[in-house]
Design a protein around this nucleic acid. Structure first.
Length: 556
DNA sequence: GTTGAGCGTT
């Protein structure tokens, strides 16, 4: 991979642009970084003259066949200004305007969350690694001179600004947030981050960075740990990111799929239009939501009614079932019946099949055959980072993963609520209206996510995970994610479909046969920080509030 | 001396 160092103007900080395999540089690659540019030139050290780079049919050719682009720093050529000084040359003025806009888009950036000890010098020092810092200031108390914990920086180049806005920042030991002042943190209107699905465990961040760098500068690579079969790659240029979306790429012999990392708003309205709001058993700190749009949230941290069962309208049982009124996992209770029972035959119904959604197929589990209760004594393995948020059981995990067949999925009508405090930012990008509660799937949700992502069936349902980073890049996804870290601990869905018959929602501490959801103790949940004590319901973790959330999770 | 969401004495 050959990179060409290009700056907008001579003397500016260069950006490395990836050349093609034949050694040429695509004009489109250049223009992605330098809108309005039409060519390149460079300073010939021998003659001291500026030389132009040969350009033909959208390709720029290196000066030397032998040494390629060499070590020169190239700078952009922009369309000449109208030599006739006519004011109505819109084409040129447009290019110029675009260029100017690009240049002028440098603004002061606010840096929030600075350590008290950070000085203007250290702030400047930190940000100088991103480019020329024109200004760095810390806001201080007038009287005491004590830092207020925030400040402002301004960069000399838009590229530096972009780079800063798309990176996480650990300044003097504290994760800080950098934003355009008074913005909601969306550093980019167009997302720079892509979702890379179908990753294998041996694809590390360096592999991803190296591979994707050929398309444009990669500012961040994030691989959720534990392994979840997907990752995120952030580009400096949102155009580059967008251009890759929808494509398959081969990295280390593995076909990965690139798609939009940004949740697509409001695509899934749950076309099935169900709006049952029956809960089953206790929510154990969670709360089954009835959303006006017909989606029900019953997983993750609701943000409301935490730690109680106020809304357990049909409570009673000790079922701990995750019940989304459409297609229940394991089901149980009113409305819960008739859902699709994972982990067993879909015959656990009978009785209170109020939802009428018993027609779905089953996920083809290899285990948990009909009637065999399937308790996974573990929390949602992989949804929490072990650091800080712990809650990853040391055992259990995902064994016997079944496989999903598309027809089954479509037939299932299983729900797709992840979790959210307001049922926003979730459940998106599900054009088929296929509900799938990833959090309740008896298989590795990452694989499902990756697969479904490829099928464009849903967005990144798993983005509401806890991260071990505090702070980080709050730029974008937090807005959609409601700022919460969710989706933990959702895996107590036992199979037991075959049990059937029992009165769901009844106070049956044993749950035997009556519910597809057998509450198990969370013996594998070791992390007390999450409020998930052994023997607890398994859901309390969800309600542990701030303990379970990261200050500002960077994810997306 | 403590704090931790915010938005800058121009």
């Amino acid at each position: 991979m050959d990179f060409v160092q290009v700056s907008e103007e001579e003397g500016d900080e260069p950006i490395e642009l990836p050349a093609e395999e034949d050694g040429t540089l695509l004009l489109s690659t250049l223009q992605a970084q330098f809108p309005g540019s039409c060519g390149l030139k460079y300073r010939n050290m021998d003659t001291k003259a500026v030389r132009g780079v040969r350009s033909n049919e959208g390709r720029l050719f290196p000066p030397s066949v032998d040494s390629g682009w060499g070590e020169y720093i190239y700078f952009c050529v922009f369309p000449k200004e109208n030599k006739r000084k006519s004011d109505d040359n819109l084409e040129n003025s447009t290019a110029k305007t675009k260029r100017i806009e690009t240049r002028l888009r440098c603004t002061d950036l606010i840096v929030l969350g600075l350590p008290w000890k950070t000085t203007e010098d250290s702030l400047r020092e930190y940000f100088e690694s991103f480019g020329e810092v024109l200004m760095a200031q810390i806001k201080k108390d007038v009287k005491s001179g004590q830092s207020k914990g925030f400040g402002f920086v301004r960069f000399g180049s838009y590229e530096a600004q972009m780079r800063v806005l798309s990176n996480r920042h650990l300044i003097d030991g504290r994760w800080c947030e950098v934003k355009v002042p008074n913005s909601k943190g969306m550093g980019h209107q167009v997302p720079c981050k892509v979702f890379v699905g179908r990753c294998t465990e041996d694809i590390n961040s360096d592999d991803l960075r190296e591979y994707f760098s050929k398309f444009g500068e990669v500012t961040d690579v994030f691989i959720p740990r534990p392994f979840r079969a997907f990752s995120f790659v952030t580009f400096l240029d949102p155009d580059v990111a967008q251009s890759l979306c929808g494509e398959d790429h081969i990295i280390k012999g593995v076909s990965v799929h690139v798609s939009n990392a940004a949740p697509k708003a409001e695509q899934n309205r749950n076309h099935q239009g169900q709006s049952y709001n029956y809960n089953t058993g206790n929510s154990f700190g969670m709360h089954s939501y009835h959303h006006p749009q017909g989606n029900h949230i019953n997983s993750g941290r609701s943000g409301h009614h935490r730690g109680n069962n106020q809304h357990n309208a049909h409570g009673g049982g000790d079922n701990s079932a995750i019940v989304n009124s459409h297609g229940n996992i394991g089901s149980g209770g009113y409305g819960g019946m008739g859902g699709n029972n994972f982990g067993g035959a879909n015959s656990g119904g009978g009785g209170y099949n109020s939802s009428g959604h018993n027609s779905g197929g089953n996920i083809n589990r290899q285990d948990g055959g009909g009637g065999i209760p399937y308790n996974r004594p573990n929390n949602f393995h992989g949804m929490n980072q072990p650091q800080h948020n712990g809650n990853v059981g040391g055992s259990g995990g995902w064994m016997n993963r079944g496989h999903l067949d598309m027809p089954n999925l479509q037939a299932l009508g299983i729900n797709s609520q992840g979790s959210s405090s307001s049922n926003q930012g979730q459940n998106m990008n599900n054009p088929l209206g296929v509900g799938l509660n990833l959090n309740t799937l008896p298989m590795n949700p990452a694989l499902v996510a990756a697969a479904l992502n490829q099928w464009s069936m849903l967005g990144n349902q798993l983005q509401n995970q806890n991260q071990d980073q505090q702070g980080g890049n709050f730029l974008s996804w937090m807005a959609q994610n409601g700022g919460h870290s969710n989706a933990n601990n959702l895996n107590n869905c036992g199979g037991g479909g075959g049990g059937g018959g029992g009165r769901k929602g009844s106070n049956n501490p044993n749950n035997s046969g009556s519910s597809g959801m057998n509450k198990v103790d969370n013996s594998a949940c070791n992390d007390q920080q999450n409020g998930c004590a052994p023997g607890n319901s398994g859901w309390s973790n969800q309600s542990s509030g701030s303990q379970n959330s990261v200050d500002k999770s960077n994810f997306l």
